Simulated assay, not measured.
Amino acid sequence: MKYPFRPPCSSPCPSPRRQFFHRALRHGAGLAGAATLAALAPRAWANVPQARSLALAHTHTGERVELVYAVGERYLDEALGQLDHFLRDHYSGEVGRIDPGVFDQLHRVQQRLGGQAFEIISGYRGARTNAHLQATRGGGVATRSLHLEGRALDIRLQGVALADLRDAALELRAGGVGYYPGERFVHLDTGRVRRW
């Protein structure tokens, strides 16, 4: 039986790394074992149907990540763990669990707009950090911020105008969208649909 994710061999045939990846899937590694390969070789997923990937660059830590985080309805645990760490509270280092729905929003926005990597201004935020920012930012930080629950990101998209990013996020109707042109970011979250 043919494995459903195996791409046809065209000219030129897949690289040895890609061949190894597809053999691993066919011979029992399955998606759980393939998650490790996603971290090691995200481009190996390029021809896998329904693979959802992200490229992120953190403006505060200088870190970058590019990975596949889901295939079809299944999220890849190792990739989600990497994203949780990448999107940690950059003030305290505290790692929270990020709602995968936020990643789906990013993926859908990028499908509409293209662009390069998402620039992350803020991801997860711990309670102490949130309280400190409330005290020092003059009311621009919500007491019950969805950043505290790992359900919000403040972002830009390289190569895309900020207003276009806002409009694409609003069209999704998948949660809240805040537009901060002065600070040069768009907030999106998986809360109720709203805008500001």
Rank of each mutant, 00 (worst) to 15 (best):
A57I: 02
S92W: 08
I120T: 01
G33V: 04
R74D: 04
F5I: 11
R166M: 07
W45V: 06
A39V: 15
A161R: 14
G30F: 03
G33S: 03
A79K: 11
S122A: 13
G33H: 06
H90G: 01
G140W: 09
H58P: 07
A39I: 15
A41G: 05
R194D: 15
G93S: 10
E171T: 12
V102W: 00
Q19A: 07
D89T: 14
P7Q: 09
P8K: 09
G62A: 14
V68A: 04
D104G: 06
A38D: 05
F20C: 04
L80C: 08
L113C: 01
R88K: 07
R112E: 13
E183K: 12
G139V: 12
L188E: 03
Y180A: 11
S53M: 02
L162A: 02
Q134C: 06
Y179P: 06
L113R: 05
P181I: 11
S145W: 13
Q82F: 12
P8A: 13
G123H: 02
V186A: 05
A35R: 05
Q111D: 06
R173D: 04
G115S: 00
V95C: 08
R64F: 05
V48H: 03
G139K: 13
R195N: 10
F21K: 00
G96N: 06
A32I: 13
R128D: 10
D89K: 10
A24I: 01
E183P: 05
P4H: 09
A34C: 08
S11K: 13
G191P: 02
G28T: 15
F185H: 09
A131P: 07
V65D: 00
G182T: 11
G81T: 09
V160I: 06
P49G: 03
I121P: 03
A142R: 15
R64A: 08
R151S: 02
W196M: 12
G93Q: 04
Q134A: 05
R192M: 12
G81H: 06
M1N: 13
H58Y: 09
V48D: 05
G28I: 14
L40R: 13
N130M: 08
V68R: 03
G114S: 01
R166C: 08
A38P: 08
E119L: 15
C9S: 15
H85L: 10
D164A: 15
P7T: 09
K2V: 15
A168K: 12
A174R: 03
I120S: 02
V160P: 00
H85K: 08
A29T: 05
Q134H: 03
G93A: 08
P100D: 06
G123Q: 03
A35M: 10
D154W: 10
R52E: 13
G33Y: 05
H187W: 00
A46F: 03
T59I: 12
F5M: 12
Q134S: 07
L113K: 02
L80R: 13
R125D: 01
G140Q: 15
V95H: 10
R125A: 01
S145K: 11
V102Y: 00
V68Y: 04
D77H: 13
